[in-house]
């Protein structure tokens, strides 16, 4: 029977590998929409907002990124759950998840969440996460990563000075400030979305969504949820 346990582990690893690749592709494809939303938000922001209401910009940027993250997680989770049920149906004949299959194999439950690159995210996801709860828990585990204050402070400084120099100069400075702010917000989105500029293994939305999905999948396989 050990070969059946190994065959089952291979099925689940294939499911995991397919989900991780699909999530990367999904986020990459959806990312331009996020950047457009963030650009529009910077364009919409009034001069007063740029100068004084850094809090407003920061929180609305956070909200846009989080809304995008939740949407991506929902989509990834639905696909992963459906494909995991298919994989379970295709297990070698007679194999049931509630049997002692794992003891026949490696004496450990399949470590499908044991991927080094997403280890930091896996550690941050609630242990009992399931496909039923995964989409509502995004804000809980993503809340730790926030947009930095200096990002907005820099955009506001130049405008504040230019208000003393006349309307022509102000418009020019404001346009430059908006463009610069937009670039910085995009770079921040790159960092938060894909960990760009960070160390390998640093948390980002891509890793967090991947971790949430494989952990929910692992719990489904182990019968925890």
């Amino acid at each position: 029977m050990k070969f059946q346990a190994i065959a089952a582990e291979l099925e689940f690893l294939a499911w995991r590998d397919a989900q991780l690749a699909a999530i990367s592709l999904q986020l990459e494809d959806a990312f331009p929409d996020l950047l457009d939303d963030l650009s529009a938000q910077v364009e919409r922001a009034g001069r007063v907002d740029l100068v004084r209401s850094r809090l407003t910009l920061k929180s609305s940027t956070e909200a846009i990124i989080q809304r995008w993250g939740v949407k991506q997680l929902n989509s990834a989770s639905s696909r992963a759950e459906a494909e995991l049920e298919d994989a379970i149906l295709q297990l070698p004949g007679g194999l049931k998840l509630d049997s002692d299959i794992w003891e026949q194999g490696s004496n450990v439950l399949p470590a499908i969440a044991g991927v080094g690159l997403i280890a930091g995210s896996v550690a941050a996801i609630p242990t009992v996460i399931s496909f039923a709860t995964v989409s509502t828990s995004f804000l809980a585990f993503w809340g730790a990563a926030t947009i930095s204050w200096p990002l907005f402070a820099l955009g506001a400084t130049g405008i504040g000075v230019a208000t003393f120099l006349g309307s022509k100069s102000l418009k020019s400075v404001e346009a430059r400030a908006r463009k610069s702010l937009c670039n910085r917000v995009h770079r921040e989105a790159d960092r938060q979305g894909f960990g760009i500029g960070g160390k390998p293994g640093a948390r980002c939305i891509l890793s967090d969504i991947q971790a949430a999905v494989v952990k929910a999948g692992q719990n489904r396989i182990q019968g925890v949820s």
Binding site: L13, A21, S24, S106, D190, G193, I196
Partner: peptide, 27 residues
């Protein structure tokens, strides 16, 4: 077979490909 499985368990095509893209400057 189990040892080979354990050796390769933590490797996924996606994570390896992401590590190859780690030095990218933008999305």
């Amino acid at each position: 077979a189990q040892r080979f499985l354990n050796l390769s368990q933590g490797l996924t095509p996606d994570s390896l490909a992401r590590l190859c893209a780690q030095s990218a400057s933008d999305s």
